[in-house]
């Protein structure tokens, strides 16, 4: 157990070395939330309902998306493919420490750090906009937390899968970029997905993307009935299992062709 804690502490320390880039990145996140909040506040001065969202709902939506963005989607593993291709992971492979545990801890350290900043940011936004955020009941909230955890796991597998491209090729920016583009639109970050045409929504709902933020928020806002919850939970679990198995399979293959370059 101590080895995990020591690594966690070290990752955290390491993450704080480059404070400037950390602050700029957080500032970007903060400004993006600030902008969304302002835009939607303006929209709601003339309407009290937009796309089926009341003003409070929409504000809650934006607060939540900022939160989930940092907790589910942000990942310290974005450069993983490069680290594999350059042979940097050799260090971890040589030690009696499971490499996936290593990545998981790196992620946790990163997320704890994000959350820490996020609490401050949220506090400031709170003072500025004084939103009315109503929490769901205990049962829904518990499912919300579980879904958040599920989203986090799912994103972890996705990051590992993208990273594994580094076993074979240095050119991973293409697919990664495409993924981010799709993610921007389909995780509900830019706008709620339910303003899209029905047919498009149907397609998006069978992909993993809405499980990376959007559905968690829908759940929180009380916009899903128990049928929906069950339905989505099943798809969610299926995706997690599928992605988990794929990750294992691909990594087994990848490690066999790993070339440990770098010297």
């Amino acid at each position: 157990m101590t080895k995990y804690l020591t690594l966690l502490k070290l990752s955290w320390q390491n993450g704080l070395v480059y404070r400037l880039s950390l602050f700029t990145w957080r500032l970007r996140q903060f400004l993006s939330s600030l902008m969304s909040l302002t835009v939607w506040t303006v929209i709601f001065t003339s309407n009290n309902n937009a796309f089926g969202y009341s003003q409070d709902n929409m504000i809650t939506y934006i607060f939540l998306i900022a939160f989930l963005q940092s907790i589910i989607i942000a990942s310290s593993l974005n450069g993983l493919a490069q680290r594999i291709y350059s042979g940097e992971i050799s260090n971890h492979l040589l030690k009696p420490f499971n490499i996936f545990a290593f990545f998981a801890i790196e992620e946790i350290a990163d997320k704890v750090k994000n959350t820490f900043f996020l609490i401050f940011e949220t506090f400031i936004l709170f003072l500025l906009f004084k939103p009315l955020i109503s929490f769901p009941d205990f049962k829904i909230f518990s499912i919300f937390l579980i879904w958040c955890f599920g989203g986090l796991i799912m994103n972890f597998f996705i990051s590992l899968l993208f990273g594994s491209l580094g076993f074979w090729s240095p050119q991973v920016w293409g697919p990664k970029f495409l993924f981010f583009m799709i993610l921007e639109f389909t995780a509900g970050k830019l706008f709620p997905l339910d303003i899209l045409p029905k047919i498009l929504q149907k397609i998006i709902y069978i992909t993993p993307f809405p499980y990376l933020s959007f559905l968690q928020i829908q759940l929180f806002l009380g916009r899903l009935n128990s049928n929906d919850i069950l339905h989505h939970s099943l798809i969610f679990i299926t995706w997690i299992i599928f992605l988990g198995l794929s990750t294992k399979y691909i990594w087994d293959k990848g490690l066999r062709s790993y070339e440990a370059t770098g010297q």
Partner: peptide, 25 residues
Amino acid sequence: MGQKNQLWWDLPAIESFYLNKAIYE
């Protein structure tokens, strides 16, 4: 390896030593 490093680049060496202490128990 002469040119490979396992030490954490941005931290003092002693931190990496402590990590190894934990990892190798």
